[in-house]
Structures are given as C-alpha cells and as structure tokens.
Design a protein around this nucleic acid. Structure first.
Length: 345
DNA sequence: CCTCCACTGGAAAGCTCGGTCT
DNA sequence: AGACCGAGCTTTCCAGTGGAGG
C-alpha cells in the first residue's frame, strides 16, 4: 500500500513545489548572481512552522546546483546546533573542510579563520531556525564573507531582529526578505494529494479524508504530511488496503506527539524529571516545581539551574509559563485539539 | 506610594568529561 | 602516561521586574 515512503518523510524536498511559485522565484533571484560567480545577497525567509521555509530554501539551492557546477551548499539546523562552535563545525564539515579540525580542542577563532580562508566554489549556507542561535553574531561573521550566500530562516522576523545587534539589524533589513504565509486548506489539500499520489497506491485514502487532514493541520504542511505518514504506516502495519477514519483520528494525535517526543527525548534526566512534574501536576508555581523536584531527584541541582531548565523547555514549546512575577505558573502545552474535527467529519 | 517578596535571567567562576599533544 | 585544553553544564551572586499588601 505504501509505494514510496520517501515522499512522506519530513525532510523530503519534492521535485516541484506547489503554490510557492512567487516565493521560489524571489529566492532564486537573490541567489542568481552565483551563477555568474558573483557574491549573492543574504536572504531572510520567515513564516510560521510548516509553511515550506526549509523546503523552498533547499529546493532553490538544489535547482541552482543543477544549473551551475561549481556551487556547494550546506544546511544547518541552528536549533539542534545552537552553539557557535557546532554551527561552524557543521558548515565546515559539509564543505569538506574538517580535516585537521578536532571536535574538542580546536579554538573557535580557528573555525572562522578556516571559513575565511575557504577558497572552494561559492557556497549557499542555509541557517534554519536561526533565531535559536545562542550567539547571533555568527550571522554577522558569515554575512561578511563574500564566498558564502546566506539564507536565514526564522519563524518570525521580530525574533530574529530582537536577538541581534544594531549593525546586523540594519544589514538584515536591507537584505532580501521572503515571507511565507500559512497554506490555505485547498493548497494544503493539493500538496497532500501530490504526496499521496506518489507515495501511496491508488484509492488508499479518499479525497474527503485528505481534505479533513488539510483542515485539521490548520495550514501547517509538516503536520499534515506527518498525519498522512502516520495513518499510512498504521494501515501498512495492519495490512489494510485503505486508511480508515479511526486511523486518521489516531494519526492526528500521533503526528503532534511525535514532534513533541523529539524534544522530550533530548532532555537530560534532571530536565525530564522537571518536565514530568509539570506534566503530572501542572499548573505549578516555580517554587512548587523546585520543591517537588528537589524531593524526588537524586542529587538535585540548584533552583537557578531548574529555572534554566524551565526556560529551555519553554523555548522547546514543551511547557508554557502563564502570568508574571508572583502569579506565574507553568503547565504543559496542550496538543490535543484536532480530535473533534475528525469526530464530526 | 512604598516596601516586601517571588520570579527572572545575566555574568562569571568552577567542575567534569572527552579529547589532543608530547 | 600525564599535562593540557575547550565545551557544556552547574553554581554562586545579584540586579531588575512587577504583584500584593500595608
């Protein structure tokens, strides 16, 4: 029943991008100078999650590489590689420049030096979730190197500008800006339809079901494709020929928890304990959380560290803080809102 | 309006771990 | 093997913020 699982995976870049012609063209134009061996301007790509920011950036870069021989490209997820060192290392690694660089004992500055000395072909550097960078000055360093064309991806323009200093803000404001809006339901339906057609046997899923996935995903293509993937793999496991409505219902839950589970898995045991306390007993005040935590933990960390955990988890969108100062409480982020849409449909 | 108190998050120093260098 | 180094995490200290209550 699954014909080509690749097209249902999260990072898949399709051969044609649907409903993003204007944005794709815009981004292509920014990178265009590279085809003539000229330096390209920095591009900023913004929009909420699942609108295709990563997808069109990779797509445009791939297409450029098909056109021109001498172009390298690298993709760094700054959320996973949030330190300056990891990001630089990732870029150098992708460019094949990590010979003689040792993960542990090479100073920061040497990595930047390496990039400055890089004399290979021009390279497109995609920095995904760039607002998550611990030290945004890295953007400035890369921006000033003419052999690299930067694509900075962020959810919100403001998040990006808030975290960087003045000189960089003015430079980024001057650079090309590609804004992506949420998909409308019919657009999402088209995207899902295309993936289903390539990825699944015919008649595995009905048009009506696809439309309901599109509806439930509320403009988020990643979520929608995740739901489709989850439903399809369930049907496959159970050796069914078609996807049933109840599978769709479970898939909606699945797709959301899977995204969350990734974050949860990256927590340390101490962070995990704090998260579990908030999940089971929240909403709780910070002092209550710490009291519980220090009782339950083996060799508990200090309250300050616990605060660092909380703000980290808030960034990961695992928990949310409500209220300010004394009436502040933390609780887990609610992720079960899609059920009713499928129930009535 | 003023003081108290809980909460927040920055800065700097300390620790441990895993790696290199000789 | 032992000295040494940097990253990442933790601790200590503390200034700033904003409700609550006199």
């Amino acid at each position: 029943m699954i014909r080509d699982a690749r097209v249902l995976r999260a990072g898949f870049v399709p051969s044609e991008v649907e409903h993003r012609d204007a944005e794709v063209n815009h981004l292509s134009t920014v990178l265009q100078p590279i085809t003539d061996g000229e330096p390209a301007d920095t591009a900023v790509v913004t929009g909420p999650s699942g609108v295709g920011k990563t997808c069109i950036s990779k797509f445009v870069t791939e297409r450029l590489r098909e056109e021109v021989l001498d172009v390298e490209s690298t993709y760094v997820n700054c959320w996973r590689n949030f330190t300056r060192y990891r990001t630089l290392y990732q870029i150098l690694d992708d460019l094949g420049q990590t010979i003689n660089i040792h993960r542990q004992s090479t100073p920061h500055d040497e990595l930047v030096d390496r990039l400055q000395q890089y004399d290979g072909p021009r390279a497109v550097v995609i920095l995904d979730e760039v607002d998550q960078l611990e030290d945004p000055n890295l953007i400035y360093d890369l921006h000033s190197l003419p052999q690299f064309a930067l694509i900075c991806i962020a959810n919100r323009e403001q998040d990006l500008f808030n975290s960087v200093d003045e000189r960089l803000v003015s430079r980024l404001r001057a650079s090309e800006h590609v804004r992506l809006e949420r998909y409308h339901d019919p657009e999402l339906y088209d995207i899902l339809g295309a993936r289903a057609k390539r990825g699944l046997d015919p008649d595995v899923i009905s048009d009506d079901q696809l439309y309901r996935i599109a509806d439930a995903a509320a403009g988020d293509a990643r979520l929608a494709i995740g739901m489709l993937r989850s439903a399809a793999s369930r049907a496959d496991r159970e050796s069914k020929d078609t996807i049933t409505d109840s599978m769709l219902l479970d898939a909606a839950e699945d797709a959301r928890t899977q995204i969350k589970q990734k974050s949860i898995d990256s927590l340390t045991p101490h962070q995990r304990l704090v998260y579990d306390i908030v999940r089971e007993q929240g909403p709780l005040t910070p002092s209550d959380i710490y009291e519980q935590y220090s009782e339950q933990a083996d060799d508990p960390r200090t309250a300050r560290t616990c605060r660092t955990y909380l703000s980290k988890m808030e960034q990961y969108n695992l928990i949310e803080g409500d209220g300010t100062s004394r009436d502040r409480t933390y609780s887990v982020v609610d992720s079960t809102k899609t059920s009713d849409i499928f129930e009535t449909g």
